[in-house]
Design a binder for these strands. Structure first.
Lengths: 227, 227
DNA sequence: GTGTCAATAAATATCGATATTTTTGGGAGG
DNA sequence: CCTCCCAAAAATATCGATATTTATTGACAC
C-alpha cells in the first residue's frame, strides 16, 4: 500500500516534487481549510501566482480541481472565490455526514475481514500516538482513522462523498474555533467506543457511537459559531 | 431567476458565446455522457484540442472541472481519462440516488409552497410536450423535472449530489442501451404518480413512487448490461 | 528467447505574452 | 443630486512555444 522508491516518492506527499498543479492544489486546499484564505474571498490569479511562485496555468487548474471539493466556486469569466460558509451549510454538511457515514460504516462492518480490522486498530493506535506529537500530525491521523472506518464498504463513490464532507467539516472547525482546539469531552473515549463496536461487528452500536461523536462536535461548533 | 439581456445571453446556454473553457466543458461532458468518448478512454489533450478547435488551457481546465462530476479521472503527470464504468459502479449509483433523492424529496415536500408546486406542474407539462419533439429536448426536460422535485429542499449540497448522480446514471443508460430508448413500462404514468403525490404533500407515497421508478429503470438497465 | 537500457518519440505540464472581459471612476446630461 | 455612459485600469481567459515527463522502440548482452 505504501511501497516507495526514490523516484516515485517525488510525486506523492505534500507536493514538493509533484507537478506544479498538484502542489498548488494541496497548498490552496490547506489554506482554504484553515481559513488562511477566508470563506467567500476573491481568489485572484495574479496574487496566488505570486504567492505560490508558479505560473497561471497550474493555479487555474488547481482552482478548477478544488471546485470538486466544493471549496472553491467558479464564476464564469469572473474568476474564482473561496466557497462561502454559513451555519445553514454547516448544518447541512453535518446532516449529510450522519446519513452517508452511517451507510458506509454499516457496509464496512458487513464486509468485515481481518485485514480491515487490523488496519483499524493500527490507525487508532497511530491517532493516539499523534496526539502527543502535535496538531498537524493528529489532524492527518484523525482523518485517516475516520476514513479507515468507512473504507471497507466497497462503495468508492460513497467514500468519496464522505471524505469530501469530512474536509468541509474540518473547515468549519477552523472557522468557528480558529483551530483544532478540543473541548472537555473525552474524544479519545468516543473514538475507542466506535473502534470497539466496529471490531465487535456491532453495526448499530458503532453507528450510534459515531453519529453521537459527530453530533456532539457539531453542537459544540454550532455554539462557537453563534459567538 | 432567468432574466436575460442580450449581453449576458452570450455566456449561458450551450456555450456558443461562453468562455472557451465552459464551451469545452459542456461539449466534453456531453460526449462522455453519451459514450462518444467511451468509458476508460485516454483523453489526449492534443486530440481534443484539434476536435474542439481551441487551445490546450481550456481543455485542461474543462477536464479538471469534469473531475468534479466524476466523469473524468486525473492521473498526475499522465493526463486524463474518461471515468471507467462497471456494473458495480452502476449499482452503487442507483443505491445512492435512492437514498439521497428520498431525503431531498421529503425535504422539498416538507418545505412546500405554491411557487414550487406550480413549477413542478410546469416542468411536468414541458416534459410531456418534449416527448413529441425529440430525444434531446426530452432528455433536458426530464432532468429538469426530476431536479425540480428536489430543488425545494433548501439543501444545496444534497441537490448537487443528486444532480451529479443523475448524470452518472444517464451515462449508463447510453452505455447499456445505446440511447434513451424506453421500455414498455408506462414511464409517463410513473412520473405522473410522483407528481400527484408531491402535490398532495404525501411524502411517503411520493418517495415510494420515485424510488420504484428508479429501481425499475435500474433493473432494466442492469439486464441490458449483462447483454 | 528474454530482459535491460538507452535513444527516440509522444504526450503532458508549464511558462510568458496577448487578447478579452469585467470593473472602476470620472464626467456629461437629465 | 442622481443616473447613465464612456474611457482607463485591472483581472480573467486564452494562445503558442517550450520544458519535462512518460511511453515506445530497438539494439545489445545474457
Amino acid at each position: 500500500m505504501s511501497g516507495y522508491t526514490v523516484m516515485n516518492m517525488m510525486k506523492d506527499g505534500d507536493g514538493k516534487g509533484a507537478s506544479a498543479t498538484r502542489s498548488a492544489y494541496l497548498t490552496l486546499r490547506q489554506m482554504i481549510l484553515t481559513g488562511e484564505l477566508p470563506a467567500g474571498e476573491k481568489l485572484k490569479i495574479e496574487q496566488l501566482r505570486a504567492l505560490l511562485k508558479t505560473g497561471a496555468s497550474p493555479i487555474r487548474e488547481a482552482l478548477s480541481l478544488l471546485t470538486s471539493d466544493m471549496l472553491v466556486e467558479r464564476l464564469d469569466q469572473r474568476g474564482f472565490r473561496a466557497a462561502p460558509a454559513s451555519k445553514a451549510n454547516f448544518e447541512e454538511i453535518l446532516m449529510l455526514r450522519c446519513t452517508l457515514e452511517d451507510m458506509a460504516l454499516r457496509a464496512s462492518i458487513a464486509n468485515g475481514g481481518t485485514a480491515w480490522e487490523e488496519r483499524l486498530v493500527l490507525c487508532h493506535h497511530h491517532m493516539n500516538r499523534a496526539r502527543q506529537k502535535g496538531t498537524p500530525e493528529f489532524e492527518v491521523a484523525h482523518k485517516t482513522f475516520h476514513m479507515a472506518l468507512l473504507e471497507n464498504s466497497g462503495l468508492p463513490t460513497l467514500e468519496r462523498y464522505c471524505a469530501q464532507l469530512y474536509d468541509l467539516n474540518i473547515r468549519y472547525r477552523y472557522l468557528a474555533a480558529g483551530g483544532a482546539r478540543y473541548q472537555k469531552r473525552d474524544i479519545a473515549a468516543e473514538h475507542k467506543s466506535v473502534l470497539d463496536a466496529a471490531l465487535d461487528h456491532d453495526a448499530d452500536r458503532a453507528s450510534d457511537r459515531l453519529l453521537t461523536h459527530y453530533r456532539l462536535t457539531g453542537e459544540y461548533l454550532g455554539q462557537q459559531m453563534d459567538h
